[in-house]
Structures are given as C-alpha cells and as structure tokens.
Design a binder for these strands. Structure first.
Length: 771
DNA sequence: TGGAGCGTAATTTTT
DNA sequence: TTACGCTCCA
C-alpha cells in the first residue's frame, strides 16, 4: 500500500532536524522553517508517518492559507499512499464547512452566500448610506479595512465603538453595525466572518470544542507566521484538549501584517506552549551560497525574529549582482536583453522571474519584454471569478440558492438590460424598505403595489426567468449554469459583443460551465450551494502557473512560496522597497525587509537586484534614492554593476581610489553600500563636505531619508506649523511633513476643507512668505 | 441608457 | 499615467 513499503522509508531522505519534526508524536511542535528548507516535505511526511503508525487519516487536520497549498499538500500526501479521508483545507474553507455544521449557532442559514471583497465593499457602501456616514468623512475602503481589522480581533460593532477614540473610528463602528445588519438580512457572510464566527462559536461552546478535539486529534498548520488573531484562536481551540498542534512557518517570511497577521503568534508559540518542541530547519536546498549569504545578512537587521543560520552544502555560485541604472526604462531593457541572451544560450523562459514591490512597475517591464518578443505571464489580477460576466452568471445562481441575497438580485435585475432601469429599482427598494420585506418578495407581490404598476410586465417575466432557471438547477449544476446563460440572454449579449469584435467573454463563461462539470465529477455529493461557496474561495493566486513556458512577473507578495532559477528583483529604491507608506507611518519597516528577504530567497542560481536613479512615477519623472536595504545585504556575495551613462553629470563612473577600488577584470566594482552601518556613518560624515561622486549622492539621499529632510530639498525649511498656500484650497498649515524616496509628503490642514495629504513635489503648494 | 468628460487618488491582497 | 466614479447630455 505504501510507496515506501515500510515506515523507515519515510525517513530515509530526511536530514536530522527534518526527521525529528516528522518523528515527534504528541504535544506541541514548532517547526521554524527557513526558505527552501524542505518544509512541505516535512509536513507531508509527518502526516504520512502519523497514519503509518496508527492514526486514522480522518483524525488529522491540516490547515493552509491558499487553495494552491492545500491542493499541493493533498496531492503529495496521497502520493505517499495515505491521505484518503484526511482533512486538508484552507482556514477559510474549513470555516465554511464548520459554519455549515454550526448553522444557527453562527447566525447563518443553509444556502448562505459568501461575499468576496468586492461584494463586501458594495454592501459597506450601502451600510454607509444607512448609517448616514458620507464618503467624505470615511472612505468606503477605509471603512472596510477598519471593519476587517475589528473582525480579525473578534470585536463586535459595540466593542469597536467603545474602543474608538477617533472620529472616523466612531463612524466605522456605526457602519460596521449597519453592515452586519445587512449581511444578516441577506444570509451572507464575508471572508472575515468565516473565521470570526467559527472562533466565536468555539469560544462560547466548550462542548463543540470537545467534539472537534475528538474528531481532529492532530493539527498541522502551515505558514503559522501569517495567522491573525481569529485564526490563532481557532488553532488554539481545535487543539485545546490533545495539544497536538504542529505549527510550521518562518517569522522572517511574515508579509501580511497589514492584513491582520500577528507575528507574535509564532514568536510567542513557546510561551503559549511552554513544553513545545522547537525544530529549526536551517539547511537550504534551494539557493546558492552567495544568494543565501546576501539574504541572511539582510534579514539579520530585523529584531522581531527567531534567529536561524541558513546554510547550504551546495556551491557558492555566482555572486548576487546589484545593478544601477539612470532610469527605470534602462532597467527593464537590460533585464529584457539579459533574458533574451540567456534564452538564446538555452535557458527556458520559465526559468526567469521578475519581482517588484508594486504592480505599477510591471508595465515598463512588460513593454521591454514584449519589444523583444519574450513570452511572459503576469501572476495578477485577471481574476477569473472577478470578471463581470462570471459574476453576473454566478449572481443568478446565488439568487436561486439564497433568495435573500439582495446584492446578487440587484445585480441581475437588469443584466442583461431588460428595461428594469434605476428608476424602477429605486422604487422597488423604497417599497422593500417601507414594508421591511425582502426585495424578492416585493417582486413576487408586485401587483399589490400600485406605484410599481408600470414595471409589472417586465418584473413578472423576470420572475418567470428565475423559475425556469431554478427548474433547470434541480437537474444538475452544469445544466443550471447553462440555463442561466441561455435563458437570461447573457449568452446572446456576449455573443453579440464578440461578433462586434469585442473581447471574447463568452469563452470565459463557457469556462465556467467546464468548472461546474469538473466540480460535479469530483465532489462526493455535489450541490449548487457548495459549488458557489467553493467558487467564492477561489483566488487569482491559485492561477499562478510556474510552468507555463513564460517569464513570470509578479509582486513580492505573490512570489512567496515559489522559486525560480533566475530572479530579478527591481526597484530597490527608498520609497518603493521599503515602500513610502511604511516609511511614512514609521510602521513596519521590518515587514518591508522581510518582503525583500522573501524575494531574494526565491532565487535558486542567479539573483539580480536593481535600482534606478530616476523613475517615472505616475507620469512624473522623479529622482530615486537606492534602498536602505542595499546597504544591508552587501558583503563579498554581492557585486555591483553600473549601467549609468558616463556623460550624465550626476552619474559619474566610480572613481578609483582606496575607497573606490577599480573594477575587476569583469568590469564589476563593489558598491560601498556594502559597508556596515557604522562605517557608512563615519564615511558619510567625512565625505559630505566634498560631495563628488554619484554614490556619495546616493548615500546622502539614503541618509536624508533616514534622518529627516535633505538639506537640498526645497522643503527643507518646512515644519509642522508652517503656513502654506494651495492653489485651490487656499491657506493652510502643515500638520506633519515627511520625506521619502524623492517625494515629500505633508499633511496640511485648511480652514474650510479639513486636513489633506499631499505629495509636495506634485502639488500646487507654496510656502507662504511673510511680507 | 450609454457615453463623454471631469475630478480625484494612487501598496501589498493567502481568502 | 491610469482607473474609477460621478455628472451631464444626446
């Protein structure tokens, strides 16, 4: 049965710490797994080992963050000849399953809808209207973030209100209350609810905790560093009795703090479980010695971490290359040229990946690649299930499954156009509000309301349409999807669009039919309800296909968990990485460093990091300063190459001196960004007086970004309290001012317009001079 | 009902 | 630069 034949086979190709993690049986276990240290292997082997030694597979629960990770883990465990019956889920999918079990305890009815972020934002806008909070007071996305934060901490609207001391927090609490009301009316939950409600049920029902502890006797949690408070509590409760919790993760790869992930969950694991066994996986099987050294040096600058010594028995390999350019375009073109060259020498395109901090940087790279005919794939946002035509189609099914889902109902009422315009919808909503009945019920009873008379015919044929789809849905899910497309007129509308030379969105909805068919074939007991709930949890992240034969472009966040033979990490500039918002808020610069660390450690053989001295930011050419991180990853594992044009005055070639060694025979020179903190400080002080060479300027900018405003900044003499004049808003007073990556941000309070934040370089603001 | 025109704002986004 | 949301007009 087993592919190994006997238990010892499971352990044969593991190193010592890996083996310890696999063999550990009962009690809490923390596996601190550095990048490329074979973490997934450990988890899957551990699961297999438990089964081999007598634990029924159904008693094991493995939790991941992404569907992709869950699928991968399931696949690998099954390949070991075990795994049938094992629970391998994302936190959210587990949430759905438990919510279905808990039902009313979690305030949900059968058929409940899961609102994704877009849906949720729409409902929040409606809630803001109900709560009387105008968008000028609180932006809907801010409200959404605030509510999400509260939910992650299990705070109710009342609790948020009690804690709120700022005006916008108060407003957010009121929106939160209205939002919850709407969700309840619509029998809907958002992503955060899938965690919060489960956590609350567990907190309030010890009997359920006990039952689940009996069902799941061993818990495996991956990427533990990314858990938020709700997830932490769920994990804690689910292992409260047996305490067989195995958490794997790496504090150095925690990059979702801004989404509520709490690094303390993993840092304090040993406090939560004083008897925890801790295993460190420090041997790296992925990267060359040079890459590892650079990454290790960088991350060593962080304080909030668990120390690990990453090492490899593999070759040191090529040094990491640090490229400097005059302009972002040159950076993109150099990368394009390198890929073309290497590809001509036999490397497949799929060996290459380009990472950036913000999506906006992808454009220049795309252009450069396209110009050379290099195939590339962007691991982002053409999110299948977020496409309008897909959401339209699914909305019909949502209404069938959950008649209370007003959001979906409103979406389809006039999609495709059938003469039920905003006016009619407005009236319908008024009646629904007045009578406090669900919208669908109003439609059904349309004849009772004289003011809705003009729309009666159209509404009734719409209801008739719904009924026919519902009849089809009783057959099969595939048929239900087909019925929606045919009967609603969506298909015809898309067909027409295609014939007129538009996008082939028809192909997308046909893909949905395929997805439905696949689901029906795979699921044990397929239901439309489950199909919709499953679809709601699919993300674009799942679509990342590393083997597509193309160069991969992605953000650093999307890169986590992946690896590539050749990696380019672009835009290592102050304000980009670290991002200006992290600098400005004085927030988590350490998270930015971890992000950089994640990027570096994706590379197997070759790693290029680059920055430009000027870049087009939102159409404006701005000077850029090299990232402070460049100074931290130095050492002999890194060599610098300067692609700046020699005749450009600010970008002179490196001068030859004791401090600036001549280029070696390969044309590389070390950049003195590689100096230690102390050395740099001293050197800066020594050299500031004679600012002569390009790198000095760069260093000065870094320095300025760290210490405050550059002396040469036109805003050097602006302070909090400085009076300024804005072209539009008139006279105002500076509340705070902070530089960052060639941009100076300031918040200014105007008498009439309140406080606003500006990028001074881009705004029509000048200092008010005393006259 | 849809499109043009204008103003505004601008990380990251496992689910 | 670009994307979105809003208003106004045909």
């Amino acid at each position: 049965m087993s592919v190994f034949g006997d238990v010892s086979g499971i352990l044969a190709d593991l190193n010592e710490p890996q083996r310890r993690a696999v063999l550990h049986r009962d009690g809490p276990l923390l596996v601190l797994a550095g990048p490329g240290s074979g973490k997934t292997r450990v988890i899957t082997r551990r699961a297999a080992h438990l089964v081999y030694t007598g634990v029924p597979a159904r008693n094991i629960l493995a939790i991941t963050f992404t569907n992709k990770a869950a699928d991968e883990m399931r696949r690998r465990i099954e390949a070991l000849g075990v795994g049938r019956g094992m629970w391998v889920h994302t936190f959210h999918a587990l949430g759905v399953r438990l919510l279905r079990e808990f039902g009313p305890l979690a305030r949900v009815q059968p058929g409940f809808t899961i609102y994704d972020e877009n849906d949720s934002l729409r409902v929040i806008k409606q809630a803001m209207e109900l709560a009387g909070v105008p968008e000028t007071v609180l932006r809907p996305d801010r409200a959404a973030a605030e509510i999400s934060r509260a939910k992650n901490r299990l705070e109710t609207p009342a609790e948020l209100a009690a804690r709120a001391d700022r005006f916008d927090e108060q407003a957010a609490a009121r929106v939160y209350a209205a939002y919850e009301e709407l969700l309840q009316q619509r029998n809907a939950v958002d992503f955060d609810d899938l965690l919060m409600r489960v956590a609350l049920v567990l907190q309030e029902h010890p009997d359920i905790v006990e039952r689940l502890n009996l069902r799941f006797r061993y818990l495996l949690i991956d990427e533990y560093q990314d858990t938020n408070h709700a997830q932490y509590l769920i994990a804690h409760h689910l292992s409260a009795h047996h305490r067989n919790i195995c958490a794997t993760g790496d504090p150095d790869q925690s990059i979702y703090g801004w989404r509520g992930a709490d690094l303390n969950n993993i840092l304090d694991f040993e406090k939560d479980y004083p008897d925890a066994v801790v295993v460190r996986l420090e041997q790296n099987y992925r990267s060359t010695g040079a890459i590892l050294q650079a990454a290790s040096r960088l991350i060593a600058a962080n304080r909030r971490r668990k120390h690990k010594d990453l090492w490899t028995t593999g070759p040191v390999g090529e040094p990491v290359r640090l490229w400097r350019f005059d302009e972002g375009r040159a950076e993109a073109e150099r990368i394009g040229a390198t890929i073309a060259e290497w590809h001509a020498r036999g490397r497949p395109y799929s060996d290459f990946a380009i990472f950036y901090r913000v999506n906006a940087l992808s454009r220049g790279l795309e252009e450069a690649l396209r110009a050379r005919g290099i195939p590339y794939q962007i691991a982002r946002g053409v999110e299948f299930y977020n496409r309008k035509e897909i959401k339209d189609t699914l909305a019909y099914l949502r209404v069938i499954v959950n008649p209370a889902d007003e959001l979906a109902l409103r979406r389809i009422l006039n999609t495709p156009p059938r003469g039920i315009g905003p006016k009619t919808i407005q009236r319908l909503l008024e009646v629904a509000g007045r009578t406090e009945r669900p919208l669908l019920e109003i439609l059904r009873r349309i004849r009772e309301f004289p003011e809705l008379q003009p729309a009666t015919g159209k509404i009734e044929s719409f209801l008739n349409l719904l009924d026919r789809i519902k009849a089809a849905a009783a057959g099969s899910i595939t048929r239900a999807v087909g019925a929606v497309l045919e009967l609603s007129g969506l298909e015809a509308a898309l067909e027409e669009e295609r014939e007129e030379g538009g996008e082939d969105r028809l192909a997308n909805v046909q893909e949905l039919v395929t997805a439905a068919r696949r689901y029906e074939e795979e699921a044990e007991e397929p239901t439309l309800e489950e199909f919709l709930q499953r679809v709601a949890l699919v993300s674009d992240q799942d679509a990342v296909d590393e083997t597509a034969g193309a160069v991969m472009l992605m953000t650093l966040h999307a890169a986590k968990g992946l690896e590539f033979p050749v990696v380019f990490l672009v835009g290592l500039e102050q304000g980009l990485l670290p991002h200006e918002n992290a600098l400005r808020e004085g927030l988590d610069i350490e998270e930015e460093r971890r992000l950089c660390f994640v990027g570096l450690t994706r590379a197997r053989e070759h790693l290029f990091v680059s920055y430009a001295r000027e870049r087009l930011v939102r159409g404006v050419r701005l000077p850029r300063a090299p990232s402070q991180f460049l100074g931290e990853l130095g050492g002999d594992a890194v060599i610098s190459e300067d692609f700046c044009e020699p005749w450009r005055p600010p970008a002179r070639r490196w001068r030859e001196s004791a401090e600036h060694p001549a280029p070696d025979q390969d044309g590389f020179v070390p950049l003195d960004d590689q100096l230690s903190e102390d050395e740099r400080g001293m050197r800066l002080r020594r050299r500031r007086r004679t600012c002569e060479s390009a790198d000095e300027e760069d260093l000065n900018i870094i320095d300025a970004a760290r210490e405050g405003l550059s002396e040469t900044s036109p805003y050097a003499d602006w302070r909090a309290g400085t009076l300024v004049q804005h072209e539009q808003y008139g006279i105002g007073q500076v509340v705070w001012i902070r530089p960052g990556g060639g941009q100076t941000r300031a918040s200014i309070r105007f008498a009439r317009y309140g406080e606003k934040t500006f990028i001074l370089e881009l705004s029509p603001i000048r200092k008010l001079e005393r006259s």
